[in-house]
Amino acid sequence: MAAGGDHGSPDSYRSPLASRYASPEMCFVFSDRYKFRTWRQLWLWLAEAEQTLGLPITDEQIQEMKSNLENIDFKMAAEEEKRLRHDVMAHVHTFGHCCPKAAGIIHLGATSCYVGDNTDLIILRNALDLLLPKLARVISRLADFAKERASLPTLGFTHFQPAQLTTVGKRCCLWIQDLCMDLQNLKRVRDDLRFRGVKGTTGTQASFLQLFEGDDHKVEQLDKMVTEKAGFKRAFIITGQTYTRKVDIEVLSVLASLGASVHKICTDIRLLANLKEMEEPFEKQQIGSSAMPYKRNPMRSERCCSLARHLMTLVMDPLQTASVQWFERTLDDSANRRICLAEAFLTADTILNTLQNISEGLVVYPKVIERRIRQELPFMATENIIMAMVKAGGSRQDCHEKIRVLSQQAASVVKQEGGDNDLIERIQVDAYFSPIHSQLDHLLDPSSFTGRASQQVQRFLEEEVYPLLKPYESVMKVKAELCL
């Protein structure tokens, strides 16, 4: 049975990233139509530049190519590739079939990587351009969430054990800070992308030097003109047959890092959902379990974690691919890159769409948070109580021993009897502590235990987050809708 299948058929496997999760716009960027249309555009740009620099290419040939950029006979191309065992030459023939007058000058002087690699770089750039505003929107939604809850005390956790208090907004800023680093890295790697350009079979530009009869300047002009037509500021000066596969490492490393950030955020949300302090959106008709109707599973956060793990592992592909590119190139890269580049971007696209949807509907339960604080705060307040007693004339050592005994009794009630923490009640009825009984409410005010959390939130948002989001103001209103 021949390899390949009808990918629109229910009898043929289709990647869930495309069929179930990723956005239509990201799927289109990695589609065959987008790819092969870009090949034709690159052939047109090459012909236009070659004509401008004096090669015998007519206006009629150029116009014929322009008129057929979208006229792609995919069936013919597939048949040609089956016959020739070469995808680029299959599309040269297919393009030439609908451009008979231009057929002889299509791909003039070029090698397969002229269309293959340059198209990949265009796709990487455009895919990054799709991700950047999506990530900015996630940051914006979380920034709104953090600002609104900047002063809401909550129990902090280290080692997932109760620690000092923080605020809900401050905790959210930990998430935002990681995503801001990801946004900066995505922008950097996007701006650092260079075009492969017009380089020939081993990167020496020998074929173009021959076409222009040894004119170095025209060869350099050709490279520059096509690079500018493709919208790049610069091209690699040095290439082998391909652009260095280190570029793929750079791009997928940034995406993998984004995956790590999203995994951490969504894990926190899942843990908070278990504590009943916070939940992701839950639709009115949504079913959490087929057997347990009360369940409210954090399905979206779980999906993000599941896909983020996949995204983090994909960076190993370009690392290994770059390491086995012998001399000017081997074909070890080809099949692998067809999979890992598309999957990385479709996965990143999915987790950003999902995280935006989550961040637009996060639900906080202040009463649950308050109750958990009441359970733990008495123990945390013991040092403040000791200091207040010393100020009232008591002995630190005597007070410490009193607190120690009462704390152990209260802990026994919590752990052995399943009761509430009654340390404060014990202190309130103990005559030894009568000098500070009137101060206990103040000493137990949760806001006095959150330090500068709310001020940190305000400063972080104003100095770091809002300036970073400013270039994306025009796209901030787009909502994230999930079908599944």
Rank of each mutant, 00 (worst) to 15 (best):
M26A: 06
K66A: 07
I249W: 01
S15P: 13
R33S: 06
S289F: 02
L423W: 06
P153N: 04
Q320T: 09
L174I: 12
T94K: 10
V247G: 14
V168L: 05
Q61M: 02
A110V: 03
V364R: 04
L53P: 00
I237N: 10
S261Q: 02
F36A: 14
E283H: 10
D129S: 10
S474H: 14
D191V: 04
Y114Q: 08
G393Q: 07
K101I: 14
T204N: 11
V457Y: 03
T321P: 01
M278I: 11
T450N: 02
A127Y: 03
L469M: 07
I287W: 01
I249M: 13
D192K: 10
T158E: 01
R234K: 07
F195E: 05
L443S: 01
K82I: 12
L130C: 10
I269P: 02
E473D: 14
F345T: 13
S412H: 13
D333R: 00
K134D: 14
H91K: 00
Q456K: 06
K479D: 08
C99S: 10
S434H: 06
I72C: 06
P56C: 06
N297H: 00
Y294F: 04
L193K: 04
D144G: 12
Q61H: 07
M225V: 07
L84F: 06
Q184A: 12
E220L: 09
S412I: 04
L406Y: 14
F160A: 08
R125S: 08
L362I: 03
S15T: 15
D420T: 07
K402T: 01
K170S: 04
D178E: 11
E79H: 11
P10V: 13
G5S: 13
A49H: 07
C266P: 02
Q177R: 09
R296C: 14
K402D: 15
D6L: 10
F212R: 03
K276A: 06
M299Q: 05
V405T: 15
S151R: 06
A3H: 14
D192Y: 13
S301N: 00
A344V: 00
R20M: 03
N357K: 15
S434K: 12
A143W: 04
T382G: 07
R137T: 10
I386R: 03
P298G: 05
D6R: 12
T330Y: 02
L131Q: 11
E417K: 13
Q177P: 01
R125I: 09
P378R: 00
L271K: 03
A103N: 13
S207P: 14
I123V: 15
M225L: 11
E80K: 12
Q161T: 03
L222P: 01
A110R: 01
D32A: 11
L108N: 09
V315T: 14
Q320G: 14
A342E: 00
G200E: 03
D178G: 12
A77Q: 05
G288Y: 00
W45H: 14
H97S: 04
K66H: 12
C173T: 05
I427E: 02
Q51C: 05
P16H: 15
P10M: 12
Q320D: 00
T450K: 10
D349N: 07
P378T: 09
A230N: 05
A2S: 13
G169A: 03
F327S: 07
L108C: 13
E81H: 08
E60F: 11
Y294S: 01
R452Q: 09
E360V: 10
V262K: 06
L128E: 03
H93E: 09
T111L: 00
S112P: 05
F449Y: 13
G394N: 13
A410Y: 07
E383Y: 02
A388F: 05
N274D: 15
E464Q: 13
K470Q: 14
L42W: 00
A260D: 04
A308F: 03
L130F: 02
H217R: 08
E360R: 03
P471L: 14
K367Y: 04
T158S: 10
T58E: 06
R270Q: 12
V247N: 03
Q184R: 12
L352R: 02
M292I: 01
L484C: 14
W43V: 03
T94W: 00
L271G: 07
K284Q: 09
I249P: 05
Q221D: 12
I139H: 05
G231K: 09
K246E: 04
R459Q: 15
A322P: 02
V115Q: 07
Y472N: 15
S253Q: 12
L124A: 10
L108F: 05
K229D: 07
L155T: 01
T321Q: 05
G109Y: 01
I105K: 09
G393K: 08
I403K: 10
D349W: 02
V368S: 06
A49S: 08
L352E: 11
D6T: 10
N421D: 13
K233V: 13
S207T: 15
R85G: 02
R234G: 12
M225E: 08
I237H: 15
A308D: 02
E228P: 08
R270I: 09
D59I: 06
L152I: 15
G109W: 00
K470F: 07
L165W: 02
L314H: 15
A3Y: 11
Q409L: 11
F212V: 11
G169V: 02
M387F: 08
P133T: 10
V465A: 11
G8M: 12
N357Y: 01
A102K: 00
V88W: 03
L174M: 14
K147L: 08
M89E: 03
K147N: 15
P298R: 01
E283Y: 01
L124T: 07
M316K: 02
I123F: 07
S289C: 00
D317K: 01
G8E: 14
F208A: 09
K170Q: 10
T330I: 05
R14S: 15
A146N: 15
G8V: 13
I62K: 04
K224W: 08
L69S: 09
I176E: 07
E70R: 09
I287N: 04
M225N: 03
D430Q: 13
M299S: 11
A206H: 06
P162Q: 15
K218S: 07
R396P: 07
D333G: 01
N384C: 09
T347L: 14
R188Y: 09
I385G: 05
K224F: 03
G4H: 14
E250H: 02
Q397C: 06
P378Q: 02
D333A: 01
L183W: 09
A127S: 11
T154G: 03
A388S: 08
G4T: 10
V226S: 01
A381E: 11
A102Y: 02
M26T: 09
G231T: 11
I403N: 04
A453Y: 05
M299Y: 10
L121V: 12
Y34E: 13
V413Q: 14
E302I: 00
N185M: 13
P281K: 14
L307S: 05
L272E: 13
I385W: 05
K66G: 05
F195G: 08
Y243V: 15
A150L: 04
L444M: 14
M387W: 07
F282W: 12
E64N: 10
Q439T: 13
P446R: 04
M225I: 03
T94G: 14
S261K: 08
H107C: 13
S334M: 03
A260N: 00
E228C: 13
T204P: 01
R141M: 11
L183I: 13
E50W: 12
N357F: 15
Q41Y: 11
M89G: 06
E360L: 12
K199T: 07
L55T: 07
A103I: 10
I386G: 06
S448T: 12
D422S: 15
E417R: 08
A381L: 15
V88E: 05
I339R: 02
L209D: 11
L55F: 04
R396G: 06
R190H: 09
R371M: 01
Q416H: 09
A291H: 02
N68E: 10
N384L: 11
T38Y: 05
F327H: 11
H86P: 01
C305A: 05
G259K: 00
K367I: 07
A322L: 08
S334K: 03
Q375L: 08
F460W: 08
Q184W: 12
M292L: 04
E302P: 01
I424K: 13
N421L: 10
F28R: 10
